[in-house]
């Protein structure tokens, strides 16, 4: 029962070279996907909280949008929505290609979907500038506050996921230690999430 390795008081000092790494069966679902799924539950609940807030506040106000506030550009944003959905689609195709070991084509398609995502972001930003010019700010009314909160929260996610995906896109083409299709999947899941949440928000904020 003696313990040769505990020389140090606080924490063991001896470092063991783990030549015998665990020989576990490959898990049916990779860690990245499980981690991303549980993270997406949190994200979904985050947006559910925002949606609830929108519905409750909205229901308490008779005139919507309130007097003196601009209406939202429904048509251009509908086009924008299509662009975002399309980027989700190309993302799916790129995964298919990557799984079939066609890295060049897959990478190109991933790049296209990232460009589409960037287009969506820029178009949304342009829309914000126009709305601000019309005098709709965060504090001009609770309507403006909710709009910028919900659309901004989504936009923030788009920016974050795009940044990580662009990094992954670089790594796909790297000569040493390139990212694999499996390694890319969690990030793609997050992109699907961002794409899938948008139509819900669009219907909620723009159409109703």
């Amino acid at each position: 029962m003696t313990n040769p390795s505990s020389q140090s008081v606080l924490f063991a000092a001896s470092e063991v070279s783990l030549t015998n790494r665990p020989k576990r069966a490959k898990p049916p679902v990779s860690s990245g996907v499980i981690g991303m799924l549980i993270f997406m539950v949190t994200e979904a609940m985050f947006f559910a909280g925002l949606i609830s807030a929108y519905m409750v506040i909205r229901s308490g106000i008779e005139e919507w949008p309130p007097w003196g506030q601009p209406r939202l550009p429904v048509e251009t944003t509908a086009f924008n929505t299509l662009v975002l959905l399309l980027s989700g689609l190309t993302m799916g195709f790129s995964r298919n290609l990557l799984q079939k070991q066609k890295f060049q084509e897959g990478r190109r398609l991933l790049g296209i979907s990232l460009l589409l995502g960037t287009f969506f972001l820029v178009a949304q930003g342009y829309e914000w500038v126009q709305l601000l010019n019309f005098g709709m700010t965060v504090s001009s009314s609770v309507y403006g506050g909710l709009f910028y909160l919900i659309i901004g929260a989504h936009g923030f996610h788009v920016v974050g996921v795009l940044a990580v995906l662009i990094h992954a896109w670089n790594r796909l083409g790297a000569s040493n230690n390139p990212i694999t299709a499996e390694g890319l999947l969690p990030l793609q899941l997050l992109w699907y999430f961002v794409v899938c949440v948008w139509p819900v928000l669009y219907v909620l904020v723009y159409l109703t």
């Binding site: 979904a44 609940m45 609830s52 229901s59």
Partner: peptide
């Protein structure tokens, strides 16, 4: 309004069942 009541009902059920 009646709508607020409905909104509270709906969001309560929505938030409760979604997770």
């Amino acid at each position: 309004s009646e709508e607020t009541l409905e909104a509270f009902y709906f969001t309560t059920i929505f938030l409760t069942l979604l997770p």
